[in-house]
């Protein structure tokens, strides 16, 4: 009798744990859908009031109840692209260095330092940006670029330091660890036999890297760049602190601007009427939509490489 009770109790316990974990797993999916739904439903007022003009209008004027998101979208995209141009080649180089070149002691130390870069809070990057990076840019880097490359519209104008260029550089530092760690992950998935095959055919190390490693992992590397881009687009504090926070559109990188995340950070709690709040949330919705699509696509790319082609059932 008592063993029967025991068994009953055990099988009850089995079911409870199973269903609790199942419930939590489903909860994660619901959480994701709920986040999207919240953003969508809360921005309805602004969507209905402005329609598509919200995305194309340059005017952001809370006093007169007029809201357009274009300057913020522009600032976000330009800073993120600058960040990618700087961080992608360097980040992938670091991944190659760590995976293919470095002896194991150096690899451990450098990998740890790169992870440290990812561990530093964004607000500290912002602080450093305000008091160290921006003055350096204003006094030396930007005047130098204007002097030699001023014929390109990007590098025209009076240097202020708090501008899209500074925002892009800060972002580049912040997304580099993302690009490096995920590129490393996909490069590590390249079978050693491919490397040996290239070397056996007389390839130099660089040729081996190019022919075996890079060509095998290129879609995963692309995925890592897109994940870096996703991080750059949504990064808030550091950009808010160095971009200058002026909603304008300029072809010069040395011009103050504003980003989507920054305007939300600055104005969300100050939005005094519902259309204003709804407009802030709609900017959030756009940001959410872009990063969501980017992440879905990038994850599919990384999964397809790092987990083998179909099914991915190898454990």
């Amino acid at each position: 009798m008592s063993t029967d009770n025991n068994r009953l109790y055990e099988s009850m316990g089995d079911k409870v744990l199973r269903y609790v974990t199942l419930l939590m797993a489903i909860l994660v999916v619901i959480l994701m859908i709920w986040i999207g739904w919240q953003m969508f439903s809360s921005s309805q007022e602004s969507i209905q009031h402005f329609g598509w003009a919200f995305i194309t209008s340059r005017v952001w004027d809370p006093v007169h109840h007029i809201f357009g998101a274009l300057p913020f979208i522009y600032g976000t995209i330009v800073t993120s692209v600058v960040a990618l141009i700087i961080a992608a080649p360097i980040g992938i180089s670091v991944a190659i260095f760590l995976n293919e070149m470095a002896p194991s002691t150096i690899r451990k130390v450098v990998a740890f330092l790169v992870e440290l870069l990812a561990a530093i809070p964004s607000v500290v990057y912002g602080l450093w940006g305000i008091f160290v990076l921006a003055p350096v840019l204003r006094q030396s880097v930007e005047p130098w670029l204007t002097k030699w490359f001023g014929f390109i519209p990007w590098f025209k104008g009076a240097p202020v330091g708090f501008d899209m260029f500074g925002g892009g550089i800060i972002l580049a530092i912040m997304i580099l660890p993302t690009i490096t760690s995920i590129s490393r992950e996909v490069m590590a998935a390249v079978p050693t036999a491919h490397r040996e095959a290239a070397l056996a055919l007389g390839a130099t190390k660089w040729e081996m890297i190019r022919l075996s490693v890079l060509s095998y992992s290129k879609s995963g590397i692309l995925g890592s760049i897109m994940l870096g881009l996703g991080r750059a687009l949504g990064e808030t504090m550091a950009v808010t602190m160095v971009i200058g926070n002026m909603p304008k559109i300029s072809s010069s990188l040395f011009s103050s601007a504003y980003s989507m995340a920054a305007v939300i950070a600055n104005e969300f709690t100050e939005a005094t009427y519902s259309l204003y709040l709804s407009s802030c949330i709609e900017i959030g919705l756009i940001l959410f939509g872009i990063t969501l699509l980017l992440n879905i696509f990038a994850r599919l790319l990384v999964w397809s490489v790092a987990r083998g082609p179909k099914g991915g059932h190898l454990v």
Partner: peptide
Amino acid sequence: EYDRYSWLSTTVRFTTDVLTGIPSIIIGIV
């Protein structure tokens, strides 16, 4: 332990990965 390969666990795993990429400010808003 319970469900490594079904469509549900793949969905959960994928959602988890995507969730890490959602900007933290969006989570703040919600």
